[in-house]
């Protein structure tokens, strides 16, 4: 079956996400938290809130609340701006935004596709150098500090 064959070739480390998700918009945990919380409030206004909330929704909401690094919606916006300045793939942006690596090595270990590209240093075409990554991590730390 075709979907299974596609599943075999998926590998997030190489940014192979299959045809359905290649161009899809990724969301960071903090962004999902903003969306779900708003939706949760809306549901609470309805006459019968309990029946409207699925288990998947509830679990996801708990999860993103527990693991979102940035609480303030403005900070979340800034994080995305910083990350998207650097010609990263959507998926890479969100992995970094979710896990907040502290060091260059950590960032490269968590996002192998990043390490692969930054090897060909100075190559501005595909353009991400170690310095750029470090700068980016610093910017993120600053946002977190002043949130």
């Amino acid at each position: 079956m075709a979907p299974n064959a596609a599943a075999e070739e998926e590998d997030a480390a190489e940014l192979k996400l299959g045809p359905d998700f290649e161009k899809a918009k990724c969301l960071m945990n903090s962004e999902v938290a903003v969306i779900l919380e708003r939706k949760y409030e809306q549901i609470q206004q309805l006459p019968d809130p309990a029946s409207q909330v699925s288990q998947v929704f509830e679990k996801s909401l708990q999860y993103v609340k527990r693991f979102s690094r940035y609480q303030n919606p403005n900070a979340v916006k800034q994080v995305r701006e910083v990350l998207s300045r650097n010609q990263l793939a959507e998926f890479e942006v969100c992995v970094i935004g979710n896990l907040c690596p502290d060091t260059l090595e950590e960032a490269k270990a968590l996002v192998p596709s990043l390490a692969k590209r930054s090897k060909s240093d100075d190559d501005e075409e595909d353009g991400i150098t170690d310095e750029k990554i470090e700068q980016m991590l610093q910017d993120l730390a600053t946002i977190k500090k002043f949130e």
Partner: peptide, 15 residues
Amino acid sequence: CVVFRPFRGEILESV
């Protein structure tokens, strides 16, 4: 819609 889809090779946090 917002979907959650795990991928092979993905790194994430869990409880």
